[in-house]
Amino acid sequence: MSDAREAAGALAFADGAHERARFGMWIFLSAECAFFACLIGAYLALHGRTLGVPGPGALFDIPVTLAATLVLLVSSLTMVLAVDAIEREAVDALKGWLATTAALGVTFLGFEAYDFADYWARGVTLQGTVFGSSVYTLLGFHGLHVAFGIFWILSLLRACAALTAEGAVKTYLASLYWHFVDVVWIVIFSVVYLVGKAT
């Protein structure tokens, strides 16, 4: 079996399949950009309609969200280290960094859950106002992307930690995706949180 896998990996490599996979991932991420642009645009168009519940300025707790942001940023760093471990062919380091990245992702989601519970308790519900609908939808879709990234990394850890050409490209694709999700968060943090707090 593993021979067949090696052979398939080598063949796919010869066919240029890996370059195509990377290219495809970039294109997919640009479609994702357009998707998040729509969510952010809708939020910006609608967030003023708070109908009496606390608006962005009163609601957001910047220190907590800043902590979450830092956690996510560090997870990008650990992802870089994981990819670097492949290049050094260090299996244990690779596994360690992937696990750390996943753990940081889970921590971020923990912060997000805490935030959601806090907002909800202060009257911003999904149904009550369009401000609530749009903010939960935007943050929720981002959170879902983080969750999918965690699922991906855990699958990598289980199935593909061996240092084949195949495993390397899969880790690389996951890292692209993970960095993208981080970048989206930076935009959300600036546009939704910082600007929201300031205005």
């Binding site: 999904l126 149904q127 369009v130 609908s133 939960y136």
Partner: peptide
């Protein structure tokens, strides 16, 4: 992607009671 986002908004409105297209709720 804009279609996808739009269809999600409508789906949430219809299934989860969000207020994207619900004028009384903004």
């Amino acid at each position: 992607p804009p279609l996808t986002a739009n269809l999600f908004f409508l789906m949430f409105d219809r299934l989860a009671g969000t207020a994207f297209f619900n004028v009384p709720h903004g």
